[in-house]
């Protein structure tokens, strides 16, 4: 891997709630290289979104953060609002799940796009307009000039998400954080949006963080995959390794319990028993132990740290090697 674009070290995110403090992300370290796509997989409450909201300084008011997130020699976590505003929407951009709520409803999409250019690059209005229209064409929005003068509600969900991608690409960012970018979209549109992100990565050498619960989406796009559970990283590795030889029982379980179109349809699906963990009351030791088929006494008391797995990558599991194909 080449020099990292973003280097996160020992990130901790906490939220103060009425029922006490909750750790949404615990001691997380990972880095994203130039032109690399890192897939972040996890269920609700795994901390996958909060990690990157924290990095972007977009945590809810009751959140607090510690650790480091280095971008271009600057620790984003301590950089302050002013410096972050310089970077956000410019070098670091985000694409959210719901394109309707992430566009301002009362402004034409064109103006929302040109404002980004004018603010960050200081270009004049005509240049901004030309570049914005070019970008809309680039993300394959039909009749880009006409769409430029439309309001967000006049566009379909798929087109709105294209506009969001266009906005994220506008200033030639070093890193795009896509948080469930296709969850709200239909499959045919999802495929098209993923293609756009793939092209941005390949042609512009942009690093992409792809946060999703959908393993299929990750399989198509990611170079490396990080799996999170209960606010912690449980496994990280190269995409083929994760899908072919997962080293953590949770990853293995996730892969096994997903119905897929390429398998012969079986009678019953393999399941992961139990419920996702409650962050306010995480199990002792390894938080996955109550659901794990390989649980040992040690797992209940001692939390595993990330160690190299036999097939590469890192895993947080006391097992030395996981038997493959036996979920």
């Amino acid at each position: 891997m080449n020099a990292p674009v973003l280097d996160i070290k020992n990130l901790i995110v906490r939220f103060a709630t009425n029922d006490g403090e909750v750790a949404a992300v615990s001691d997380l370290s990972l880095s994203i290289g130039k032109g690399e796509c890192l897939g972040i997989v996890g269920e609700s409450g795994s901390g996958k979104s909060q990690t990157f909201l924290a990095v972007m300084g977009l945590l809810a008011r009751n959140g607090s953060v510690s650790g480091e997130a280095i971008y271009g020699g600057v620790n984003l976590l301590t950089a302050g609002e002013r410096a972050l505003n310089e970077l956000r929407g410019n070098a670091l951009t985000m694409v959210f799940q719901d394109p309707m709520t992430s566009l301002t409803p009362h402004m034409k999409v064109g103006r929302q796009l040109t404002e980004v250019l004018i603010r960050h690059r200081g270009v004049d209005k005509t240049t901004a307009r030309n570049e914005a229209v070019a970008m809309l064409k680039r993300v394959q929005i039909p009749e880009a000039e006409r769409r430029f003068d439309m309001y967000p509600h006049e566009l379909s969900g798929g087109l709105r998400q294209r506009v969001m991608v266009a906005m994220a690409l506008l200033c030639g960012p070093a890193l795009i954080i896509a948080d469930e970018p296709t969850t709200a979209l239909d499959v045919t549109v999802q495929a098209q949006i993923l293609d756009l992100i793939r092209r941005a990565k390949d042609e512009l050498d942009t690093a992409v963080v792809l946060i999703t619960h959908d393993l299929g989406v990750v399989a198509g796009l990611a170079d490396r995959v990080a799996v999170m559970y209960g606010g912690r990283l449980v496994e990280i590795g190269e995409v083929h390794q994760i899908f072919r030889a997962p080293q953590h029982p949770y990853t293995q379980g996730l892969l096994a319990c997903t119905p897929r179109l390429d398998d012969p349809a079986t009678a019953t699906l393999v399941t992961i028993p139990g419920q996702p963990p409650n962050l306010q009351n995480l199990p002792s030791g390894c938080s996955y132990h109550p659901r794990c088929p390989y649980v040992m006494d040690r797992c209940r008391v001692e939390r595993p740290v990330l160690t190299p797995g036999v097939s590469g990558g890192l895993k947080a599991c006391h097992l030395d090697a996981l038997v493959q194909g036996a979920a």
Partner: peptide, 12 residues
């Protein structure tokens, strides 16, 4: 919402 949403073991 304290122990309720809890782990499957909480339930057990």
């Amino acid at each position: 919402m304290s122990a309720n949403l809890a782990s499957p073991h909480g339930a057990a």
